[in-house]
């Protein structure tokens, strides 16, 4: 990361404009290379509290990499990312950025939920244990409170009766709903989804999308990478189209999906629609 890059002032109040909600997630000029391959080539993105952003783009355009830099599973080479005004992975002192220790990065991650394409539930723990593990060990919540919260969340994703099942005893759709509940158990400020339905059989996609739509209605700030255009149209406040490591076009779904301005967006949409 460049020492010379401009970064937000600590606790910068960004709810200045009347009526506009504060910026919850801010990605500025992010670049990331793997060896000689530059996967992110200056990405800018900002998501306001309660907003649902859907990221579209062809395979290999860097969508997963972008999500992974947001919760610091990947370090950025240049630029910066902040969640609710706090820099991710770095601390600013004067005009220097200090890399955070792993312990502090882990603490930051509890505020950024991540839902994986292939669920990554802990197979040796029951559904309930999967949900309370992070609140108890990372946030030091009392076990009793964590269990109560987990049971509420399971009810919310329609799996109240599966608390004692093991993940492998569940269908793919049920597993992904548990994974969503597990991410929610930390009460994150932003929830990131990396193709949450692409490992699922077509008839199971709907039940997972319904859960995400329900979260959207209740004002959860989310960034969703998906190929489900129908979902984007219905649930997204904003659609971001990425190609070749940059954001090519973004705006409300009615604009980007129905009247794309950029030829690359048009080419992509004509293939997936």
């Amino acid at each position: 990361m460049n020492d010379s890059v401009k970064t937000p002032e600590p606790q910068a109040g960004q709810a200045g404009a009347a009526g506009a909600r504060r910026v919850m997630l801010d990605v500025r000029g992010v670049r990331k290379s793997f060896g000689a391959l530059e996967v992110l080539r200056g990405v800018d993105l900002s998501v306001r509290a309660g907003e649902v952003t859907v990221v579209l783009g062809p395979s290999g355009s860097g969508k997963s990499t972008l999500l992974r830099t947001i919760n610091h599973l990947e370090k950025v080479d240049q630029g910066w990312i902040s969640v609710d005004g706090e820099l991710v992975g770095y601390r600013r002192r004067g005009d220097r950025l200090h890399e955070l220790k792993e312990k502090d990065v882990l603490r930051q991650r509890t505020r950024i939920g991540f839902v994986f394409q292939n669920f990554n539930l802990f197979p040796h723990l029951t559904v309930l244990e999967n949900l309370i593990e992070a609140p108890v060990s990372a946030l030091r919540r009392p076990r009793k409170d964590a269990v109560a919260a987990a049971e509420r969340l399971l009810g919310r994703v329609g799996l109240a009766d599966k608390a004692d099942a093991y993940p492998r005893q569940l269908s793919g759709g049920q597993q992904q709903r548990v994974a969503i509940a597990r991410a929610l158990a930390l009460e994150p400020k932003v929830l990131l989804f990396d193709e949450p339905t692409s490992a699922l059989d077509p008839e199971l996609v709907g039940e997972v999308l319904d859960v995400i739509k329900d979260l959207a209605r209740t004002g959860t700030t989310m960034v969703v990478v998906t190929h489900e255009i129908g979902f984007a149209r219905e649930a997204a406040d904003r659609v971001v189209f990425m190609d070749d490591g940059v954001v090519v076009e973004q705006g409300p779904p009615s604009e980007v999906l129905d009247h794309p301005r950029h030829p690359r967006t048009r080419a992509f949409l004509s293939k997936v629609l």
Binding site: L73, L106, R107, R109, I112, F114, E133, A134, A138, R182
Partner: peptide, 9 residues
Amino acid sequence: EAAAALGIP
């Protein structure tokens, strides 16, 4: 990776 993403120590 999932454990790290959840902030588990």
